[in-house]
């Protein structure tokens, strides 16, 4: 009798877990991800399969390129969104039209706004995505890896001496960033203080005179993969600027730095290394 009960219990638990699995499968969250970094982060926590639709330029990882496209900077196709029957739409305020997002919400679909304002907020976002999708363990792993890597970078920069730098966001017209920007946080992590940090606007337009007056020690120029580098400024005329005198022009991969993902840390580490090389060269000339 006891054996029958035991077998019965076993059968029950097996079928029960089978049911539970079935239930889990049918409850798999359908997500529309409206920014490349959101796609990347979902893949990082093993939730790549949850994504049913995304935007044009979501190109990493490679698997992301086969996900259906439903829009871009210019807007998204609400019809396609509806057709995909998503459970959740994860959007990025700066990259999507808020009109579209409001419309989606009115249609009864839940919208979550990804809005990481600090570097470590990326880790928190990974955890949040984990909660949404149920991939708790993987998200914790990813978040921890991220935090560790970030800590590592910060630690390695700990005793570095602060140097001043100018970040040339755009060449014509010449534009840079102030302290209220993402880039600024990254630069400061490498112990470079942005000479235009205190500007009145977030993305100030500047002239050469504005730059040489601040006398930066390094000049950082982002080099996006889609654009060819065009030198427009004859910096050599201004040896009074330390960056020119010591020839400290750093080229960084802007594509990586602009993504709120784990790869950003790669870009960050690369930038800090290059900055450190400059730092050493500056020191040696002093």
């Amino acid at each position: 009798m006891f054996r029958a009960f035991f077998i019965g219990l076993l059968l029950f638990s097996v079928s029960g877990s089978a049911l539970a699995e079935q239930a889990n499968d049918s409850k798999k969250l359908r997500i529309i991800a409206l920014a490349p970094h959101i796609v990347e982060n979902l893949f990082a926590i093993g939730a790549g399969d949850n994504i049913v639709g995304t935007v044009d330029y979501a190109d990493y990882p490679v698997e992301a390129q086969s996900i259906e496209r439903i829009g871009g900077y210019y807007g998204i196709s609400l019809e396609k969104v509806l057709a995909l029957k998503p459970d959740l739409v994860i959007a990025w305020k700066s990259g999507n039209q808020s009109e579209d997002l409001a419309q989606i919400e009115r249609l009864g679909i839940k919208v979550y706004l990804s809005n990481p304002t600090t570097i470590d907020a990326v880790a928190n976002e990974l955890l949040t995505f984990g909660e949404f999708t149920g991939n708790i363990k993987q998200s914790q792993q990813a978040a921890n890896t991220f935090k560790q890597k970030l800590r590592g970078i910060v630690k390695s920069q700990q005793d570095k001496k602060n140097i001043t730098g100018f970040y040339q966001l755009w060449a014509e017209p010449m534009m840079t960033v102030s302290k209220n920007t993402w880039i600024n946080q990254l630069i400061e992590t490498c112990h470079v203080s942005n000479v235009f940090a205190d500007s009145v606007t977030d993305y100030p337009q500047i002239s050469i005179e504005n730059v040489i007056v601040t006398k930066p020690q390094v000049i950082i120029i982002p080099d996006e993969k889609s654009k060819t580098l065009q030198p427009v400024v004859n910096w050599q005329k201004w040896p009074e600027v330390p960056a020119v005198k010591n020839d400290q022009f750093i080229s960084v991969n802007a594509d990586l730095l602009h993504r709120f993902t784990a790869r950003m840390l790669d870009g960050l580490a690369d930038m800090c290394d290059k900055i450190d090389a400059s730092r050493k060269q500056i020191k040696s000339t002093q």
């Binding site: 871009g72 900077y73 966001l169 755009w170 014509e172 017209p173 993305y203 500047i206 050469i208 427009v232």
Partner: peptide
């Protein structure tokens, strides 16, 4: 329409005129 926001902003400022160059 097919450009990224950064390019759009830069064009806008280019169009607004500057003697800095």
């Amino acid at each position: 329409y097919w450009s990224d926001p950064q390019a759009v902003a830069a064009i806008l400022f280019w169009t607004l005129g500057s003697f800095a160059r």
